[in-house]
Design a protein around this nucleic acid. Structure first.
Lengths: 218, 218
DNA sequence: GTCTATATAGGGATAGAC
DNA sequence: GTCTATCCCTATATAGAC
């Protein structure tokens, strides 16, 4: 692998693990087993490094978020879709770990991150509206709007919240909990009543059990 | 005012404004118009300063959070109560601004902050249960539990979320939005249907208009 | 209690040889 | 592309005079 890519990979891992502020350029160089000087040959500084990582993150999120706005998902795929979004965020979770500070220290990211939040919310709105049109949910338009805002917040801060409450929880468990709360949040709006919520949750648990088995099998 | 208190006051203001990591001991000393050495006479270091501020915060929160668990509020007071909690958090918002990092840098706070989160959630649970017993809400026990978790998250991260989305919004506006979303979140569970939610919101707006008038009057 | 002066450490960043 | 050596700056923290 090219040095540049090894730097990116190592920084991402370290940032996610320790938090961006707690990782120095020397730490990264050590991890990649190159000299600090060499690191500065590939990236003009920490700013450039962060910027490159953000490019990668934004690109992936853009693709993920656009899909269901253009072509609505099948109803049963909506829940699985939230796993994908959470996993994407998890892979770049250092951006979210200290979001406010990070955005003040790298102000170029500010506008772009705000745009990303809006995309997230637009995607939630599109999904809920679509589920409403198919008679799966019973929501007024203003309820869709308000709920989307809160779902966006859940997507943005759930990992942080769980990191504080359960510092030793595993990534997959936290993500599963996030999806669970997305569903639990919109449960009262299911046209079919509580049974629908229970059924969907049961399916999710089956999926997770299958996933866990697959992981053990590896 | 005693120097020690002026230091505490100035640090809190600076931390809230700029973020704890972006404020040095020299900045604080300048603000209080004393020498850095003098600051270290009153506080052994930044840790001691943070610890003292946390004491003050925890004490106030403890009082606020205990009240409605011991003696249930009148139904109509529940919504105003959330203003109080949000305002308390707002006054010490630097703790929440980069919570994850702050807790890793000051690990003594970890256990205590987790405890605080549990108290918050217990208070939410007590309120929702109480409203259920009075027939105002129609919630199953497991719904109370799940909703409390999300309300706790809303209380914890709403200020951050809004700081990212609307960097120039005023404190009172953000707090008002937070209370609005608390209500909007439990709206589908109102026994009296949507009209109740609309009525409560209308009352909140009246209160806010009165508040704004009061502020202008000062 | 308060000041001035200073020690110490760490992180970001560059110069120049190889 | 990569390394070594080094500089600069900032922040925390201490020593000792007043």
């Amino acid at each position: 692998m090219k040095t540049r890519d090894r730097i990116l990979q190592a920084s991402l891992a370290l940032f996610n693990e320790e938090g961006e502020t707690n990782v120095s350029t020397v730490d990264i160089a050590n991890q990649v087993d190159i000299s600090p000087g060499n690191l500065y040959y590939h990236f003009k500084g920490k700013d450039a490094l962060i910027a490159a990582l953000y490019e990668a993150f934004e690109e992936e999120m853009r693709i993920v978020l656009t899909a269901p706005v253009d072509t609505p998902l099948r109803a049963e795929d909506n829940w699985l879709y939230f796993y994908i979004v959470f996993e994407e965020i998890f892979d770049f979770r250092f951006f979210y770990r200290n979001l406010t500070d990070l955005l003040t220290r790298y102000p170029q990211l500010n506008a772009r991150f705000q745009d990303l939040l809006e995309r997230k919310q637009a995607t939630c709105t599109a999904m809920l509206s679509n589920l409403g049109q198919h008679g799966i949910l019973d929501m007024q338009e203003y309820e869709v709007e308000q709920t989307s805002t809160r779902l966006t917040m859940l997507l943005t801060y759930w990992l942080n919240f769980e990191a504080v409450r359960h510092p030793n929880a595993s990534g997959p468990d936290i993500i599963h909990g996030g999806v669970f709360h997305v569903l639990s949040h919109i449960a009262p709006y299911f046209s079919g009543g509580r049974q629908v919520f229970t059924d969907v949750i049961a399916t999710l648990y089956e999926d997770q059990i299958a996933d866990a088995a697959k992981r053990r099998g590896r």
